[in-house]
Design a protein around this nucleic acid. Structure first.
Length: 943
RNA sequence: GGGCCUGUAGCUCAGGCGGUUAGAGCGCACGCCUGAUAAGCGUGAGGUCGCUAGUUCGAGUCUAGCCAGGCCCA
């Protein structure tokens, strides 16, 4: 017996330098450098010349800290969409931007001054603003680095910012639009006010905490009414803020509530109620009110609907003591019957809803409380007193007036200052508003909502509801860091100067010198010769930052030649229905009559693995920097596209591990393809037509055609998680477990130029071409790495397009046929597993089972070699009844497998067990292998 | 407190008009291979479909309420 040689060197094993382990955290920065080196962004623009544009307009993040996971989600999603549109054949130009003005930065700078012992008010305003500007500048640099590390491609050399001189200038022009149309007006609004810090607070500065308030039930004597039962009686209101009583100007009732008028017939000893008096409260709250007031017996005089109260007028309880006005009853939507009396006392200077209700009825809010919490000198009875200490005196005065029906204490959730923790008050302040009605802004916005595509569709309802009921847009802020409100107000008439030339002079100055010019320059410079500076007073407010970002469409999309207006897509978290989507819509509808976007995509929020909000105290915060350092940006990107971001999404250690697992499968598939394609030359080796290929190859091409359709749908719908699920399924089930597994034999052992092997390598080449390009928008680093591994001379996969899939690849009949084939295969592998467990076989090539099938199955196997499919050395297929004892699967009726060992000897080269092994001139091998050894590949690359 | 939304195996997701034992991949357990090898293949165990009522012959799928969580607003 001759020695059997080692044939391993004659087998075509995979050869590639593409490493199994990615080492992404180290590798990705190198790829980024390469992109910077070839100026990939610029090359993409050149490649996109003349193509249809796709403009995803970036919603500007706020420049004040490191990125968190929500930023990463948002930016990666934008990048993935932008890149996929580019590869669909468009010119997808993405210009990132930043929101720079506003409170959080102002706070930070204030804090720095305080730390140095300076008072903000002592600093020249433009020095202060300079520091804010520098601060924003710094964080823009940091965030730009962090975004780019995630693989986000865009015009990082010329991003936009809301504090750029051109942006500030355009914001002036946008405001001029509203000012000249008359939509901008000066009004008054109660704002959350801290009497400790003597300043208005923004929403973000307010926190809610428990607070104990004095509650009072107060009679308002009725002086005019249509209801006889009310004559001579009183309306009882309930409030938790007695200090607002001097500001009372009206009483609100619920239009649809039932009210009842009662006469008191008996009272408890300490009751403030009087026998014989009549008063009115909501029927639902009568019992509680009577109990609180110590009324022990009563009779009902009348029941009436809320609507009957219209036109009823009361006197203020302190009528005759300086409060000599009428207090009308008004229908109010915010009245509830959850607590109180069903009547809400209205102080238009001290509550948002009060203000708007008063405004709707032409009331001018009275000024009652100064910034330090003291009543103004002109307030009768309480001048100079502090609102937080006045409750006992109010009670006393009410009692004296005979108006107090009851009082108590209530602990409830109440707004407090974030800084001082002191309770807040609502205080009336003059502000500038853009009217929702004057110029039909509300109607325009609602119409624009209908013309916009909202993804997911529910976004439409959400923003619609907000626009329908939102009050006028308050655009002024009493702060320092922002675009100055560029208005001149007539000192006598209060009228706004509407001269377009003045606005343009302001804009020009801002464009030259930033908006600091407003504070530095003499007003004459803007007013010119036509207007007397003694008559016109410049405003000292700044523009609220939402107006800044709401104008980005103007100073970015319209201003840049390489972009387009309106945008194809705005894409932000669902909170932006109230934010950027909302203000951009209003701004654009007000100035241009339509939305600045054609479509709006929203994603949810990132939560931890348990679905909870991330917080430092819970210790469940996942930072993008950590993920990038530990796993790499491609893993984070995979997480984004594999998640269903229509709702909230979760991230945590286990989820990331799973993503890394999925990535491994993708990477190893690419690696296998690269290895198996070593030396493949499509020009000489490829099989052109599917018709000339074996069926497994045609089936894979069919699956690629299906996936291609799915990919294009996913890109157009901006929804990728279904695609990634199917892609993973394809790689795992179709390729790794079936096609690649069964083709290893042909790839490794067939003669280099066997038709079967050539067809297989052709398909592997298609697989490689498709997978690398398909993955490019998503796993932008790995796709590039895999692309360059095979095309070292190429510039970048990101200059390629998605491949065009020939229509001939799609074969739905074959797809159906293969579902049956796979069923049969499952029965065979199941049967082999039993043999394996019984230690009768190890490798499947030791087996040569008998497979019993029906006629239908026989048809499905037509043209196929079941042994090849099942990776056994032989198979005998028998059309006929399944014999007793054969292996079967419940869900594959009609198929039975009787195991048998393959006959013959194991081929030393291909490891199949075959009868002819040893009968050829090369010892220990089968006929095919003997021939393959004699016909080594022609090309050197193949060797 | 109000508006919008979410809740199917450990994880990510499927489950047209309500209809037999609720699916997949990953992970896990066990086994195989040792020519994709810190890889590959196979088999298996995992679910009161958030909870409770109701409609129905029949509900993960329809209705109501509740619970938990998220976003926005107060």
């Amino acid at each position: 017996m001759s020695e059997t040689p080692d044939y391993k060197s004659t087998v075509f094993l995979p050869r590639t330098d593409f490493p199994m382990r990615a080492g992404l955290p180290k590798k990705e920065p190198g790829i980024l450098e390469r992109w910077a080196g070839i100026d990939l962004y610029r090359r993409q623009r050149e490649a996109g010349q003349g193509r249809e544009k796709f403009i995803l307009h970036d919603g500007p993040p706020y420049a004040n800290g490191h990125l968190h996971i929500g930023h990463a989600l948002n930016k990666i999603l934008k990048d993935v969409i932008s890149r996929s549109q580019q590869m669909l054949g468009k010119d997808s130009n993405y210009v990132p931007g930043w929101d720079c003005h506003g409170l959080p930065i102002e706070w930070k700078i204030e804090e720095q001054y305080r730390a140095k012992g300076h008072n903000k008010d002592d600093i020249p305003i433009n020095d202060f603003r300079r520091e804010c500007r520098d601060f924003a500048e710094h964080w823009i640099g940091v965030q730009a680095e962090e975004f780019q590390r995630l693989g986000v491609i865009g015009d990082w050399r010329q991003p936009y910012t809301t504090m750029a001189p051109k942006a500030e200038a355009q914001i002036v022009r946008e405001l001029a639009h509203f000012a000249t149309s008359g939509a901008l007006y000066r009004g008054a609004k109660p704002v959350m006010w801290s009497v400790v810090e003597k300043t208005a607070l923004a929403d973000a500065e307010v926190e809610y905490a428990d607070h104990t308030s004095t509650t009072i039930w107060v009679r308002f004597p009725v002086v005019h009414t249509r209801e006889a039962a009310l004559e001579g009686g009183s309306i009882v209101i309930w409030t938790t803020t007695p200090w607002t009583m001097p500001g009372n100007r009206a009483i609100a009732y619920g239009q649809d509530f039932e009210y009842v008028v009662v006469r008191v017939t008996a009272t408890a000893e300490d009751s403030l109620a009087r026998k014989g008096e009549r008063f009115c409260v909501a029927a639902e709250l009568l019992d509680e009110t009577l109990k609180t007031a110590g009324v022990t017996a009563h009779e009902e005089c009348a029941r009436l609907p809320g609507s009957a109260l219209a036109g009823t007028v009361c006197h203020h309880p302190w009528h005759g003591k300086g409060y000599d006005f009428e207090v009308p009853l008004l229908a109010g939507e915010h009245v509830t019957t959850e607590a109180g009396t069903g009547f809400v006392h209205i102080a238009p200077g001290h509550g948002e809803e009060d203000y708007w209700l008063g405004r709707a009825h032409g009331m001018v809010p009275p000024d009652t409380v100064a910034g330090d919490g003291l009543y103004f000198d002109h307030v009768p009875m309480f001048a100079g007193q502090h609102v937080f200490k006045v409750a006992p005196k109010i009670l006393e005065a009410m009692t004296e007036a005979g108006a107090l029906l009851a009082h108590g204490k209530l602990t409830h959730s109440y707004p407090h200052s974030w800084r001082s923790k002191a309770p807040l008050i609502f205080r009336n302040t003059p502000q500038w508003f853009i009217s929702m009605e004057t110029d039909d802004l509300r109607d325009k916005a609602l119409a624009a909502i209908d013309e916009t595509r909202w993804v997911p569709a529910r976004g439409r309802n959400r923003i619609r509801a907000m626009i329908e009921q939102r009050p006028d847009w308050c655009v002024s802020r009493q702060r320092a860091w922002g675009v100055p409100l560029p208005l001149f107000v007539n000192r006598q008439t209060g009228e706004v100067l509407k001269d377009p030339e003045v606005f343009e002079r302001i804009a020009q100055a801002f464009e030259q010198e930033t908006s600091d010019a407003w504070f530095a320059a003499d007003p004459c410079r803007f007013l010119g010769n036509d207007h007397d500076p003694d008559q016109w007073e410049p405003t000292r407010d700044i523009v609220e930052v939402w107006f800044d970002s709401g104008s980005t469409h103007a100073f970015v999309l319209e201003a840049r030649d390489d972009l387009a207006w309106p945008a194809d897509l705005y894409l932000e978290g669902s909170d932006q229905h109230r934010g950027w989507f909302h203000t951009s819509l209003l701004e654009s509808c007000g100035t241009r009559g339509r939305a600045p976007y054609k479509a709006v995509l929203t994603h949810g929020f990132v939560l931890d693995e348990q679905g909870r909000k991330m917080s430092k105290s819970l210790g469940n915060v996942v930072s993008p920097q950590e993920v990038v350092d530990q796993y790499g940006a491609d893993i984070l990107r995979l997480w984004v596209v594999a998640s269903d971001y229509a709702g909230d999404l979760r991230i945590g250690p286990e989820i990331l591990k799973q993503m890394a697992e999925m990535y491994r499968r993708m990477r190893n598939t690419l690696r296998f393809l690269l290895g198996a394609l070593a030396g493949f030359d499509a020009a000489t080796e490829a099989v052109a037509e599917p018709a000339d290929m074996p069926e497994p190859e045609r089936w894979v091409l069919h699956r690629l055609a299906e996936l291609d359709a799915h990919l294009r749908t996913a890109c157009n719908d901006f929804a990728f998680h279904g695609l990634f699920f199917e892609l993973n399924q394809f790689l795992t089930v179709d390729l790794s477990a079936v096609y690649l597994d069964l083709r290893k034999d042909a790839l490794y052992c067939d003669a280099a130029d066997s038709p079967r092997r050539r067809a297989c390598r052709t398909v592997l080449d298609h697989l490689y071409q498709c997978l690398t390009r398909w993955l490019a928008p998503f796993l932008c680093f790995t796709a590039e790495e895999a692309w360059l591994a095979r095309h070292p001379e190429a510039e970048s996969i990101h200059l390629e397009l998605f491949p065009d899939i020939p229509a001939t690849w799609r074969d739905d009949r074959l797809g159906a046929k293969w579902r049956t084939v796979r069923d049969i295969r499952r029965v065979v592998t199941g049967a082999l597993e039993v043999e394996r467990a019984e230690k009768r076989i190890g490798a499947s090539l030791q087996a040569a089972p008998l497979v019993y099938v029906t006629g239908a199955h026989m048809e499905a196997l037509e043209g196929l070699d079941l042994a090849e499919l099942a990776i056994t050395s032989a198979v005998t297929v028998i059309e006929g009844a399944v014999p007793e004892g054969a292996f079967t699967l419940d869900d594959v009726p009609g198929v039975g497998v009787v195991p048998a060992l393959a006959e013959g000897t194991k081929c030393a080269r291909c490891w199949k067990v075959l009868p002819d092994v040893g009968s050829h001139h090369h010892p220990g091998v089968c006929g095919r292998c003997a021939e393959a050894i004699d016909n080594p590949p022609v090309s050197r690359a193949e060797a």
